[in-house]
Design a protein around this nucleic acid. Structure first.
Lengths: 104, 104
DNA sequence: TCTAGACTGTTTGTATTACAAACAGGTTTG
DNA sequence: CAAACCTGTTTGTAATACAAACAGTCTAGA
């Protein structure tokens, strides 16, 4: 039978098993407020296309909420970590910690 | 600018950015002994084809060693976590933990 | 007033890859 | 000996990560 730690790892949200999305979710859950597209872009050093598609997926999975508004005349897209997203990150962290501890 | 934690994550071994392989490696590094194909199969609930290709990749990357022998007349394949593999797992898990910690 | 360039992000094309179905070789069973 | 059962491997296909190309808007300069 698989160890508890390993099973928890497999049960964590699939979207978080990509390093870019994990980094995105980490930033968003830290912020506790909306973060805009450009900030994420420069912080994570991604291309716009790549970030755009990752955010779309995260929204589809309900881990973030996308808000679009205008600042002056310019479009501005911001992202907010949902409760579900925060929970997913927590679950993932817990699983990783469990593996870490049991491997000492 | 990307955080230090994020950079560490980017430097982790590419093979571990798949949840199944991560689970396999976590399992093998915890076992500290050879684990056979069938055990991994039932413990991780995978199909044979899927497990086979993942193990092949992990061997090619030097993270596991594959041993083949016979038990009675039946073939038996076992997998052993290499030092490189153990190191890779530690690096990955530590980096992930750092990223997530920075967001709490 | 044009024209070039910068700032929004999105859509598309491609190369990689995860996955299970199909396969193959030997073994046990009836 | 034929059928079912173990080993795992090879294969075809669907999904996906990524950046290039695209599209719309705004601003600056000649």
């Amino acid at each position: 039978m698989a160890s508890l730690a390993t099973n928890d790892l497999l049960r964590a949200h699939p979207a978080l098993f990509d390093r870019v999305r994990l980094a995105i979710m980490a930033h968003l859950s830290l912020a506790k407020k909306a973060v805009d597209f450009t900030s994420l872009l420069t912080e994570l050093q991604l291309t716009r296309g790549n970030l755009s598609t990752h955010m779309k997926k995260l929204e589809e999975d309900g881990l973030v909420r996308i808000d679009k508004n205008f600042v002056g005349r310019k479009p501005r897209t911001t992202y907010l970590c949902t409760n579900k997203g925060r929970k997913a990150v927590q679950t993932y962290l817990t699983a990783v910690e469990a593996v870490l501890k049991s491997s000492l």
